[in-house]
Amino acid sequence: MLEKEIKKLAEEINESQEIMLALGDEMRQHLILVMMQSGNCSGMRVNDIAENMKLSRPAVSHHLRILKDAGIVKMRKEGTKNYYYFDADMVAFDKLINMLVHAKNIMSSLPDRSGND
């Protein structure tokens, strides 16, 4: 039974890998917070994000591309201007949450291995 659950968990981890990698970076976590704290729901331009984060435009663009590819950030064009906004793919987030809950359930079903009685 446990072997089957661990195999299923491995599949869930594989499916969540892109979003975990995107969210696992401290700079990208900060970028998401900057965007959310700006209060500008319509989005922010790379220059504005770079200024708030004290990063170069290329560095911000790199992080935004990773977040966009993972479905965490979206981009809207207005003429020649690009606006990025936090609007996560709920399916990807739900997969991540389900994987974490599944891992927690497996761990809680295992006996105490710490040696502390």
Rank of each mutant, 00 (worst) to 15 (best):
I66N: 03
D69P: 01
K81F: 15
K104P: 04
M90N: 14
H102S: 07
R76T: 11
V73D: 00
I72C: 09
L100R: 01
I66T: 11
N82C: 07
M99A: 10
Y83P: 05
F86N: 07
V91A: 12
A70I: 02
L64W: 03
L100E: 01
A59T: 14
M99P: 08
N82Q: 10
L96Y: 02
K77G: 09
K104Q: 15
K68G: 02
D94R: 09
H62K: 12
K74Y: 02
A103M: 13
V101N: 04
G71F: 08
G71I: 13
K68D: 01
E78C: 12
G71T: 12
H62V: 00
V73H: 04
A70K: 01
A103V: 06
N105A: 14
K77D: 14
E78V: 10
H63R: 04
I72M: 13
A88Y: 04
K68C: 06
N105Y: 05
V101D: 06
V91K: 13
I72A: 05
L67C: 07
K95E: 09
D94W: 10
V91S: 03
R76Q: 15
D89L: 01
L67M: 11
A103R: 03
V101R: 05
A70E: 00
N105S: 12
D89Y: 01
D89R: 00
H62N: 11
M99I: 10
G71Y: 09
I97Q: 09
K74L: 13
K104V: 07
M99Y: 10
D94C: 11
L64A: 06
G79M: 12
V60M: 03
V73W: 01
N98E: 11
K104D: 12
A70G: 00
Y84K: 04
A92G: 08
K81E: 15
K68I: 08
S61N: 01
G79Y: 10
S61I: 00
G71S: 07
D89M: 02
K95T: 14
I72T: 10
Y84Q: 08
L96M: 09
K95V: 12
A59D: 07
K68E: 11
E78S: 15
D87K: 09
V73R: 01
N98F: 04
M99T: 12
D87V: 02
N105E: 10
K95N: 15
N105I: 09
K104S: 14
L96G: 07
Y84G: 02
I97S: 10
